Computed example of a mutant assay.
Amino acid sequence: MGVQAEVVHVFVLIGASGDLARKKIYPTLFQLYKKELLPKNLAIIGYSRADVSLSHIRKRCVIDISSDEEETYEKFWLINYFIKGSYENERDFEFLNHYIYKTVSKRTNRLFYLALPPTLFEVVTSNIKRNCMQKGTVDWTRVIVEKPFGKDSESAAKLFKHLASLFKQEEVYLIDHYLGKEMVENIIYLR
């Protein structure tokens, strides 16, 4: 196998202007960046239908930094971008794909993090599959779906079936950040 050109990693945060993104996802990404646990050639693209800017998102993020972290914090925001777009409109996802291709790199690994209400999972994942996974430009794609996974077992089964129709099993990650919450809260009693 020959030597590959360097592939850029792209983290697309869909729902970038929401509470989950500003309180959990961006702060976590900063912590990983600060500890040098993210790839060196990473671009983070916030995507949201809200009429905001990256500076607006940055101001609203809940990230505590010390005075010795200010330079690292500034560098972290230099790898961030923002695109306003609809979740339902296919043309906006075509633009997102074009933006990644032209602005970031012609060859990428793409991770899409859905920090969205469950009512949008199906339309957004369909748009990702149709418009953001072109052969030859993407080495791998991963989709992370943040809970809840439907409102009952029937809607959860429908979502799982939908995701399985679009992506291979290894391309989809389901995250429930509160799965272990009760256990963590009760850890004092376990000690």
Rank of each mutant, 00 (worst) to 15 (best):
L29T: 04
Q31A: 10
L32D: 08
L32R: 12
Y33A: 09
Y33E: 09
N41I: 03
A43R: 09
A43I: 04
I45Q: 02
Y47K: 06
R49D: 02
D51H: 14
D51A: 14
D51P: 10
V52D: 01
V52Q: 00
L54N: 01
S55C: 07
S55E: 15
H56S: 15
K59C: 03
V62H: 09
I63W: 03
I65E: 01
I65K: 08
D68L: 10
E69G: 06
E69R: 02
E71P: 00
E74T: 10
E74C: 09
K75N: 11
W77T: 08
W77P: 01
W77I: 03
L78W: 11
L78T: 14
L78R: 15
N80I: 09
N80H: 14
N80G: 09
Y81I: 01
F82R: 09
I83H: 10
G85L: 03
S86G: 03
S86V: 02
Y87K: 08
E88W: 06
E90Y: 04
R91A: 15
F93T: 06
F95T: 12
L96T: 03
L96A: 10
L96P: 00
I100K: 09
T103F: 01
V104K: 06
S105V: 04
N109K: 14
N109M: 11
L111M: 12
F112D: 06
Y113G: 04
L116C: 07
T119G: 15
T119K: 15
L120D: 09
F121C: 00
E122R: 14
I128S: 02
K129V: 11
C132N: 05
M133W: 11
K135A: 14
V138I: 15
D139M: 13
D139W: 04
D139E: 15
R142L: 07
V143C: 06
V143K: 00
E146A: 05
K147N: 09
K147A: 13
P148E: 10
F149L: 14
K151S: 12
D152Q: 10
S153I: 11
S155L: 02
A156E: 14
A156F: 02
A157R: 15
K158V: 07
F160I: 15
H162I: 05
L163Q: 03
L163H: 01
